[in-house]
Write a protein that binds this DNA or RNA. Structure first.
Length: 519
RNA sequence: GCCGGCGUAGCUCAGCGGCAGAGCAAGGGACUCAUAAGCCCUCGGCCGGUGGUUCGAUUCCACCCGUCGGCACCA
């Protein structure tokens, strides 16, 4: 399917920490990344898309213990739940990395070894408040009245251990220069000042290993040549982005896809992806990702999502009720990628009914119904028409161009707004031409043909442009219009006016049946 | 405390030096192809406050108030 000469596009999402099932708040990042991946496939690019799970943490071991399950089966179950959630949302990942996989051990050790060989890793002393039950260190702030946050009965002791450090401080100038020279590296740019501020306030080296304690379950990637240590967080978690494309086999796929075009993360891990990660890559002699795309956080009905509040909703639950496309549409339309947003059931329903049902679904429905009624289902040939037809063609061309630009800039809600200009204009167009009136007069047959074709074509293009956002529905639009399902490269080859051969419409009923609000 | 974001119509937000914008919500109207949908019109804002720069500020600057984040080994 993919042209070997195609441009490659590599995108990743943050890997999740599977100490519990995913909730709706995790889904915005995944959907946004998926929209981008699908958009690039539509452009004809050869897309790789990595997601995964960060399983190498003592917190996971603790969570498994709490659940009374062995760590392996526990993470296997979490793995199943996470994949099922993203599948429900139609996230089109191409690779899935669990940090416990052997291939990931290889990749992490390789990255570590390269940084070591480059002289950026050294041994030093790490100190912190150690809780033996958690097998974890805490900072002063994290302790609750001097006790372990997870084990109120335990008073952690101050422990020092020798472990490995990464020389982040050496990269201050490099990072500052890179960020200044590549304004798109941090997207949206509102975060640039914050990151620069972090650099100016001074970067400290960070520890990258933990000593394996006796009598604890070994869990993690051994440090190459020093099995007394396991990699701690960064050289393990961040490396998944490389594992996903076959690193360190540079003759294979990783050479083709790296550097990543976009790495999508939440604002909480900004520091690690804009400072630690590029420094680690530079140290290992690898090029840096072109862009770190940072999204805001989601509240649920106005409240912070948290287990203690009890307001967690699973993505599967929401998809079961509304369908994947409506949820995807709502997330991308109402919640700005770059800022925090609130997920609200009533607003989702409003978006569904008003935008998807009334504007888009009803447009499709009236178009296929009229073509069926007035032209026996065959989309008629048409003349160019008059100014009003030209105007609609121009709106479509604008939507094509501007939506692409906005998607490229990670302004996904604005891309949808542009496409909706076309949807709205198509409805207005029908009101202006009044095909139901034209149909009453044989003398208007030619104009009726033009009107029906023009409306059908506008609907087709809107459906195509929406394909990255609502892929299943986009295909249904094509099917009702009697067209082939959307394929890779169609944004270009079929994205302009008149680039499809219509046949016979296939009315299949409302695309987004209205949801009746009860309360 | 330090750094940063935000505060514009009932709601969600756009605009960021030159007569206040969109969508939704609310009210009215003409139509009927369509998911009682679509279309048209109307209502609606001392653009958080105070001072300053400017011929002119929602837009730039200062301060204040409110609000939300970040402040490092925590995903």
């Amino acid at each position: 399917m993919t042209d070997p000469g195609a441009k490659s596009f590599y995108i990743t999402t943050a890997i999740d920490y599977p100490n519990g099932a995913p909730h709706i708040g995790h889904s915005m990042e995944k959907v946004a990344a998926d929209v981008m991946a699908r958009f690039h496939r539509l452009l004809g690019d050869d897309v790789a898309f990595t997601m995964g799970l960060d399983e190498n943490s003592q917190h996971i071991v603790t969570a498994a213990k709490t659940a009374g399950i062995e760590t392996g089966p526990f993470t296997d179950e979490m793995d199943r739940v996470f994949r099922a959630s993203w599948d429900a949302l139609q996230i089109s990942r191409s690779s899935w990395v669990r940090t416990t996989e052997p291939r990931h051990t290889v990749a992490s050790q390789e990255l570590f070894s390269r940084a070591l060989a480059n002289g950026d890793i050294y041994k030093s002393t790490y100190a912190g408040w150690y809780c033996p039950n958690c097998n974890n260190y805490y900072t002063e702030d994290e302790l609750v009245d001097g006790r372990c946050p997870n084990h109120p009965s335990i008073t952690p002791e101050w422990l020092e251990e020798e472990n490995y450090f990464f020389a982040l401080s050496k990269y201050s100038d490099f990072l500052r220069d890179h960020i200044a020279a590549n304004p798109e590296f941090i997207t949206p740019s509102t975060w640039t000042a914050e990151v620069m501020g972090l650099i100016e306030s001074g970067l400290r080296d960070f520890s990258v290993s933990r000593r394996v304690k006796p009598d604890t379950e070994p869990w993690g990637v051994p440090v190459p040549g020093d099995p007394e240590h396991v990699l701690y967080v960064w050289f393990d978690a961040l490396t998944t982005y490389l594992t996903g494309i076959g690193f360190p086999e540079d003759g294979g796929t990783s050479g083709r896809y790296w550097p990543a075009d976009s790495q999508v993360i939440g604002k909480d891990i900004l520091r690690f992806h804009t400072l630690y990660w590029p420094a680690m890559l530079a140290s290992a002699g690898l090029p840096l990702p072109r862009r770190i795309a940072i999204h805001g956080f989601m509240t649920l009905e106005g409240r912070r999502i948290s287990k203690t509040t009890g307001n967690v909703i699973s993505p599967i639950e929401v998809v079961d009720e509304f369908g994947a496309d409506p949820v995807r549409y709502y997330l991308m339309r109402d919640l700005s990628f770059s800022s925090d947003g609130d997920f609200s059931r009533s607003k989702l329903i409003r978006r569904y009914n008003d935008d998807l049902g009334n504007d888009l679904g009803n447009l499709l429905n009236r178009v296929v119904a009229m073509i069926g009624r007035y032209r026996g289902g065959v989309v008629p040939a048409a003349s160019d028409g008059e100014a009003i037809e030209a105007e609609l063609r121009e709106i479509a061309a604008n939507a094509h161009e501007r939506a692409a630009h906005h998607i490229d800039q990670w302004q996904l809600n604005e891309a949808l707004e542009e496409i909706w200009q076309l949807v709205r204009r198509a409805n207005q167009y029908l009101e202006a031409r009044k095909p139901w009136t034209l149909a009453k007069n044989e003398a208007d047959a030619g104009l009726l043909d033009t009107t029906l074709y023009t409306a059908a074509e506008a609907t087709r293009l809107a459906g195509l442009y929406l394909a990255p956002f609502i892929p299943g529905s986009a295909d249904k639009i094509m099917a009702q219009l009697g067209l082939d399902p959307i394929a890779d490269g169609d944004w270009t080859s079929k994205g302009t006016w008149g680039s499809a051969d219509f046949g016979t419409v296939d009315p299949a009923g409302p695309l987004f049946p209205r949801i009746e609000v009860t309360e």
